[in-house]
Write a protein that binds this DNA or RNA. Structure first.
Lengths: 337, 337
DNA sequence: CTGAAAGCGCTTACAG
DNA sequence: CTGAAAGCGCTTACAG
């Protein structure tokens, strides 16, 4: 004797199943499912909806995507989830997309242009509804996608080709805040550590920092700065701090354009017997959640990444609606440690 | 005068385009694309391949998925990317899937069964090739998916329903290693901190720790332990440590079943003026990359998450090949700080 | 060795 | 108000 299959194991209902059960055509069911029933009798609608509910019908996204040449999938291209800030962006974007009825394919580009292009091409084949570019690189594929007008929002790092929908903080203002803060601590000659690579946003932070310092009377040539190449910000921080102190004393205050850079500088400070923040105050940007637990010595400008996802989806909606691209500047927090 | 469209902006070639250009049927092109050309003349193959190369044809994954009822998309369901260990699993899995020709949809379940089920259902509609369950929860949808025989591999946390393909370390052995290490440091009464929730793997670590201690002569009742509920391991660590020291002194050694729990305990130690590791040695599990930079006070059992992705893909391949499910126990590292 | 045809699940003019 | 039909891009028996 065979066990009766449980209801849940029955194959998913299709439009055809529903249509047959309701005694109407698939066209009619399709219209009702899509809310295009300005032209469907009330009885028909009721009957079809009953069948849909009873059978637990859900439109198949693949069939739909093929016909519409558009899916409910959004691609996120991100350079590295190892950075808690990038992870936070991914998390909030995933949640916001889900609330909007989309799912997210995660593409880790490792900050490599060829990988970015491979993914851009592959995602196009998936008929993705849009692209969330976290830290985009200049590349052939990017140019093509933009030329095509594919919906694309840039997060944290600007479109390397200029223009485009953007979500991020006001980096220059954040840098200026860091300058004000350090000055207010009585540190009149703070230095700055930055990454030399792929860094529109972090470069802006450094610029804002320096500009504010200069505006407040610090001679430009008195502002020590170190910039080293590299993709890992912790390593960049360590190396940049090394290069900075190789040419002089430890500064009493150090603006690090990201928390990861600050972590790197911190390690060198520890190795050098420099106490943080007593001997050298470290100011970062990101406000990683982990700081409160294990990096109380760090003062950081909090970036509300948990809100980025919402704004990213807003941007995508504008693009889908045909609106012109715009920038969304999310307000950053004050400095906290 | 209109600008000539650049080649890259031409719509993607389809099977039909290729077939027309090569003067053969789509069926023939399809067979060649799929390597089923045991029965295709050498000339035909050459001609078709030339056209494919010239037109840059790439099979459309959506059309293919619809027909095959199977896509090249794999779903990863993960409870929280905020945890660096989870992020590391996502990163390595994404890379391994990509190398195998798959893309990954990231589904953040927030450790909630309804969300897990929503995603399971949605992903089924996408005809995903398989599921990577990081920290699966017991749920109706999970039962159904397993009943259906959907390819599913469990990572870090076992299948709550028992059985199934698994990738993880030997948690009991890791706990035992922590016990040996603390004993070797001359700490004869170490305590243990754990999470009370959704924690097959972390519970195993605690068991292994306690069992080894007992085996080495520590009376079971002398082993202090604290277990508190909660999803955030940092908060769990803080609360568990609080509850532990509320009933006695700070122990000289504390085994924390995850690095995040150790971070939480660390904060309480700092607040209590307890020095780590001088007064209290903290041993964690995960070996987060960040430790080397900002948590040198932590000794941790390194879990090679960067290899998990490879094993996950191996597991999926076995399942696709119809093999029986098995467990892969990735060797964990020795204790490092 | 190759092609015509059916069909995966859906949408949408078009006709009635 | 509703349905038959075409077609999105692909695969695969089936026939030849």
């Amino acid at each position: 004797m065979r066990a009766r299959p449980v209801q849940s194991m029955e194959p998913t209902a299709s439009l055809a199943t529903v249509a047959a059960d309701a005694g109407v055509s698939v066209a009619t069911v399709s219209r009702i499912v899509n809310g295009k029933n300005g032209r469907a009798s009330a009885e028909t609608v009721a009957r079809v909806e009953e069948v849909i509910a009873r059978l637990g019908y859900r439109p198949n996204p693949v069939g739909r995507a093929l016909k519409r040449r558009a899916s409910r999938v959004v691609a996120m291209l991100s350079p590295n989830l190892d950075n808690p800030a990038m992870a936070a962006i991914a998390v909030s974007t995933e949640a916001a997309l889900r609330d909007a009825g989309y799912v997210m394919i995660l593409c880790d580009t490792h900050d490599r242009a060829e990988l970015q292009d491979d993914y851009l091409r592959a995602m196009r084949g998936q008929y993705v509804a849009g692209y969330v570019m976290v830290g985009a690189l200049r590349s052939r594929g990017l140019e093509e996608a933009i030329g095509r007008g594919d919906p694309m929002v840039f997060v944290a790092r600007h479109n390397p080709l200029g223009g485009g929908a953007y979500v991020g903080i006001d980096n220059r203002a954040a840098g200026a805040d860091a300058a004000d803060f350090l000055l207010a601590q009585g540190i009149d000659r703070p230095a700055v550590l930055m990454a030399a690579q792929n860094a529109s946003s972090t470069a802006e932070r450094a610029e804002g920092f320096i500009a504010r310092l200069v505006a407040r009377g610090v001679p430009d040539e008195a502002i020590r700065r170190a910039s080293v190449p590299g993709l890992s910000h912790v390593e960049v921080g360590y190396a940049a701090a090394s290069s900075l102190v190789r040419e002089g004393d430890w500064p009493r205050g150090l603006f690090c354009v990201s928390d990861m850079i600050a972590y790197g500088a911190y390690r060198l400070a520890c190795e050098s017997g420099v106490r943080v923040p007593q001997d050298c105050m470290l100011v970062g940007v990101d406000g990683n959640a982990i700081n409160a637990w294990i990096a109380p010595w760090l003062t950081s400008i909090r970036v509300p990444y948990e809100n980025f996802g919402r704004h990213v989806v807003d941007q995508l909606r504008s693009l889908w609606g045909g609106a012109a691209t715009a920038e969304i500047r999310v307000p950053h927090g004050s400095l906290t440690s």
